[in-house]
Amino acid sequence: MATVSHTQTYRRKSWGAVFFILPLLILVVIGFDIPIVTIFNYSISSADGYSLDNFYELVTTPVFAKVALNTLRITVMTTVIVAIAGYILAYWISTLPKTGRMIALALVVLPFWISVLVRTYAWIVVLGNAGIVNKTLQSLGLTAAPISFLYNDLGVTIGMANIQLPLLVLPLYAALIRVDQRHMQAAASLGASKRVIFWRVFFPQTLKAYLAGIMLVTIVSIGFYITPAILGGGRVPMMSNVIETYINTVPRWELASAIAVILLFVTLGLFAIYRRLENRTGDEL
């Protein structure tokens, strides 16, 4: 009882929640919410008042469907690569001794904090026709002519996967080390093989965190702008790049806004799924 009454006094006498939240709320409303509403407004306006003409144009023009497919393809390829390589890496790190873990984790975290531009740019040096990969392949006699890694789907996917990996590995690692080792010991004592222990006992316990991580990578991939802009050579447009073109080159802001609104809803939808997965993971632990 005493605690409750103190809390109440404490609450009443303080300046209230409004004081803490209002400054940021004002800033976010003016500097974010109103701008977002503005593009909503643009997306449904046409020469003669409000209409869905812009969305109609997007749906009926085949090239936009192609861009949407392109975005989906790159996103899926990136997510699959990150999902497979990321799980293996996170798993391996979780089996290392303490020092090894610290070093490996530091190496995963480091690029996470280095400018996306720097990491994207490096691939031009690595993957170019005169880059180290092609030079190595040629000096080993594996290829006669340089392989084109850059300015196509492959280059964009490699660049994006590199940037997204830590996003999956870090939360997944956290989930992996929380798995109770006694479950596996119990399974082993009952005579289960290593393979069975992993797939039947270990993996299911990490599945939800894994799916949440995969969703996160998907969400970030679908809105990527920098990497396709630099490594795509103008041939691998994703939705973000098309928005930029319709703002800067063509000036058709209404159409750009309509694409942005679609992308916004897709992202929010994916995020809702992510939140659900993440919350469930939280409940179980």
């Binding site: 890496l89 995963v108 490096a122």
Partner: peptide
């Protein structure tokens, strides 16, 4: 559980892939 040879190789290659851009830029 100790990971087998294949898992270890893939993990190390992935880690190398992850930090490759960083270690390329510095000497250049």
């Amino acid at each position: 559980m100790t990971p087998n040879y294949a898992v270890r190789t893939v993990a190390i290659v992935t880690l190398g892939f992850l930090i490759l851009p960083v270690i390329i830029v510095i000497p250049m």
